[in-house]
Structure formats: C-alpha cells, structure tokens
Design a protein around this nucleic acid. Structure first.
Length: 458
DNA sequence: TTTTGAGTTGTTCGA
DNA sequence: GTCGAACAACTCAAA
C-alpha cells in the first residue's frame, strides 16, 4: 500500500482540508505522514508573539494527529525530500501557496523531490488567487469589480473530512520553539482549530449582528478576531462563508453585519490576488506614480513610533497594543500607518516590516497592500490629500477614550475623550507621557507639499 | 474603439 | 454647531 506525505504550512487544521483528502485518497488503504517544517527563512522575520502562535498551532495539530506529526527544522527543499524518501512516499501533498517566497520555496521543493510528485490541492482562499480576471483577461485592480466577480463566482463547499485518518509517524523530529508568551501576556487568545471554532461560534451569536457598526471601534470587542486563525489556517474562509450563508437564512436582522463580514473576507482575497499577479508589490510600490516622492530616513522618529512614544495617544496606544499583544485594531492600523507615512514622511515598507514582525495575524498580502493603500502607492489608493488626523480619529472611533487608557498608563488619569489631547489638560504630562513629536497641521502641509512635488516630477 | 460611470475606511474651511 | 463643498484629476471595468 502506498504511503503519502501531507506537508502542512498555512493550513494547520484537519477539517475542511482538500489537500488532506487528496493525500488520503492517494494513499488508498495506506498511511499518510503528517509533516511540518520549521523554516529558518520564515522564522527569522517573526517576533516572539508570532513564533508563539505558530508553535501553539503546530502543537495543536500534533495532538490532533495523535502525536504522529513530524516536526523538522531546516531548509524545506532538503527536509521534505529527505522525509519523503525515508518513508518511500508515492507523493507529497500540499495546499497551494500564493506568496512570493512560498511559490519560490515550493518550486525548489518540487525540483528536489524529482520523481516524487508534489501535489497542490486548494489554497488558503475561497477563490484561489489568479482565478478571477476582467472581461479583457487582465487582473482586477479595483476592489468593487473584483468583489462582484468573487461573489458571482461563488465559493466551494467545505471539504468533508475522511471518515478514517490513518497517520504514519517516523517519530524522528525536532522540538518546537517554546511558547513563552502566555506568561507575559495572558490575554492572548489561543491559536488552534478548537479556539477558532469557539471564537467563530461566539462571533456568530453575539458579534455578527452589530459587526457593521462596531468593527470600527477599537474600544469595543467588535471585530471577528479571526485574522490570526485565517493566517495559520486553523480555520478556512470556505468554512466561514458556508456557516454565514446558513446564518443569513435564519435571521435577516444581521444582514448588514453579514454583508460587511463577507466583504472583509473578500478584501483578504483581493489583496492575495493582487500579490499573486505582482509578487514585487510585497515590498515595493505597486504603482510607480510616486517614485519621485521624497521620504525621510527612518531615525529617532521611527524608533519613537515603533515604541509608541509619538505624543499622539491613538497612535501610541496602537503601537503599544502591537508590542504587547501582537495585534492592533484595524482602524488604529490605518491611523498609525498614516502617521508614519504622512506625518513622519517615512516610506511605507519600513512600517510594514515592523507590523509583519509583530502581528500575530501577519498576512503579507493584506499588510503590504493595506500600507500601500494608506501611502497612496497601491490599488484603489486613498487620495493623497487624505491625511488622517489622529485626534479627530480618536474622538470619532474611541469616543470615551477607553482604548487609549487601556494601553497608555501615563494617561490613565485623564477622563473621557480628553485623553486624546493631553496637551490641553493641566495634568496631561504629569506621569511621563511624551510631548508631541511633530505638529499635525505642519506635517499635513508638508506631506501635501511632497506629494505635489512628486506628482509634478512623475 | 470609445464612452461612461464609478471608485473602503477623511479633513478642513467657510457659509 | 452643522453642513456642504473642495481637495484633483485619474484609472479602471464594462457596455
């Protein structure tokens, strides 16, 4: 009976897993060796929270396979070929990868495997990147037409889990990185398929109806909280879309929330599609229109931004949440990114790299293209004259100041929305909060000047 | 090929 | 305090 290898990557679950089905089918009555490779090329750019989440998800997968999961550290091309040869595998199975590094890596693995086929089934998306094209056969550049095509295309039903899973383990593995973050930050949610399912149930019951209104409020628990699970694949968007479709039938009151949630999933797929067509846009401007833009080198101001000491409370609260929890509310990500790019005049990849290192949901496509949207260099970019005012954003989306106070102990004594303007409070700087690094009006005008100059030279 | 309608997420200013 | 206009044209997608 043949043996096959199932190499897990961004799909750390057993449910709704087409490549798992394929691996079992190819094995016939034989066994499947579950494998995870700790790739130094990927681990090197991950902060401690990211590493810990990965470690936890892999641990959960190991338990779900009754300890059969083989974890090996090293260059995937070498490790996968070695493992496949050692068990005499008939084929190696994967979920298709779509990021620039993942595609290069898989090509190298395929080459190294030689006669053993590397079989890709499915992707981490409901509709695989590169599937949808415009009538002219070109990739979509604007979200709304893409989202129409994406909904019209429809989403496949979740894959059924094979009734019996016959795992093989050769028991010769490397240890996982120590998940040491939980002691430091006990508030962090667990990273496992079970945790994903639990969070999803809670959100369906309590969060979805008010999602449209609450998702923009960092002071509330209004988001789905699923971004980390989508990143590691502890849940697949196909599962979510199928559940949501059932939910819609039951209660119409949640219509706006459902539509919005589906739209947010679609954004993830849109940016993955853009990155698929333009791998270089991960770390460089998608559009060349601002090639002549004058940026400042990241120096002391960049360090202050990273540490959450810019003197603008909403920005600083976000940056400190990022360092403490490996997560930042989406609204605050936009404000903080805008501040780095437009108030501190730093090129977006510097900020994007910092986010990628620390975010536990670090998704290359969403992160890079979210930054490019803010910077005005991406698809559907924000008009260049749109400069977020961190105080106005704070008053609007954190109206009682609860979010800011949660992360800035130096401002915990200021009541209500006054926390967004400590310079106006007599006691605003009594507990060591830093003065404003730059003046909003001044830097806004400076940003507009630079954009004008860049556009003239373009 | 040409035309047409439309495009995530804001801010400021002045009436 | 509230409200509408200006910001600046440009590109995309489809008819």
């Amino acid at each position: 009976m043949p043996t096959t290898v199932l190499w897990f990557r961004r799909d750390l679950r057993l449910a709704d897993h087409p490549a798992l089905c394929e691996a079992h089918q190819a094995a016939g009555g034989g066994r499947v060796l579950p494998l995870f490779v700790l790739d130094p090329a990927l681990l090197g750019s991950a902060g401690s929270v990211r590493t810990a989440c990965l470690s936890e998800a892999v641990q959960a997968l190991s338990e779900a396979t009754d300890g059969a999961l083989v974890v090996r550290r090293g260059d995937p091309a070498q490790v996968v070929a070695e493992v496949a040869a050692s068990v005499g595998a008939a084929s190696v199975h994967i979920s298709g990868e779509t990021t620039p590094y993942g595609r290069r890596r898989d090509a190298a693995v395929r080459a190294r495997l030689g006669a053993i086929p590397l079989v890709a089934t499915g992707t981490p998306y409901a509709v695989g990147p590169g599937t949808l094209v415009t009538g002219a056969g070109t990739p979509y550049q604007v979200f709304t037409p893409f989202s129409r095509a994406w909904r019209d295309h429809g989403w496949p039903a979740p894959a059924p889990t094979p009734p019996t899973l016959r795992w093989l383990s050769d028991a010769d593995g490397d240890p996982l990185p120590e998940p040491d973050h939980r002691a430091q930050a006990p508030r962090l949610p667990a990273c496992s398929p079970q945790a994903a399912v639990q969070r999803w149930r809670e959100f369906l019951e309590a969060g979805l109806t008010s999602y449209d209104a609450d998702r923009d409020r960092p002071d509330l628990d209004g988001t789905s909280g699923l971004s980390m699970h989508l990143k590691y694949g502890t849940v697949h968007p196909r599962t979510l879309l199928a559940d949501v479709a059932r939910h819609v039938g039951q209660q119409d009151a949640s219509g706006a929330g459902v539509r919005r949630f589906v739209t947010e999933l679609c954004w993830r797929e849109f940016y993955a599609d853009v990155l698929w067509h333009r791998p270089d846009s991960a770390w460089a401007d998608l559009r060349s229109g601002l090639a002549a833009m004058a940026y400042d080198d990241p120096g002391a101001a960049f360090a202050a931004w990273q540490a959450g000491r810019t003197g603008y409370p909403l920005v600083d609260a976000g940056q400190r949440q990022l360092l403490a929890e490996g997560w930042m509310h989406n609204r605050v990500r936009m404000v903080s990114a805008s501040f780095l790019v437009k108030h501190l005049h730093v090129w977006w990849p510097h900020g994007a790299r910092h986010f990628m290192r620390h975010l536990r949901d670090a998704d290359l496509a969403s992160n890079s293209h979210g930054w490019q949207w803010v910077a005005g260099t991406g698809t559907d970019a924000a008009p260049y004259f749109r400069v977020f005012n961190p105080v106005a954003q704070g008053r609007k989306f954190d109206p009682h100041g609860d979010y800011v106070r949660r992360y800035l102990p130096e401002l915990a004594h200021l009541p209500g929305a006054s926390v967004h303007e400590p310079w106006k409070a007599p006691t605003g700087y009594d507990h060591g909060y830093p003065a404003r690094l730059v003046d909003h009006d001044e830097e806004r005008r400076e940003a507009l000047r630079r954009y004008d100059a860049a556009r003239l030279r373009a």
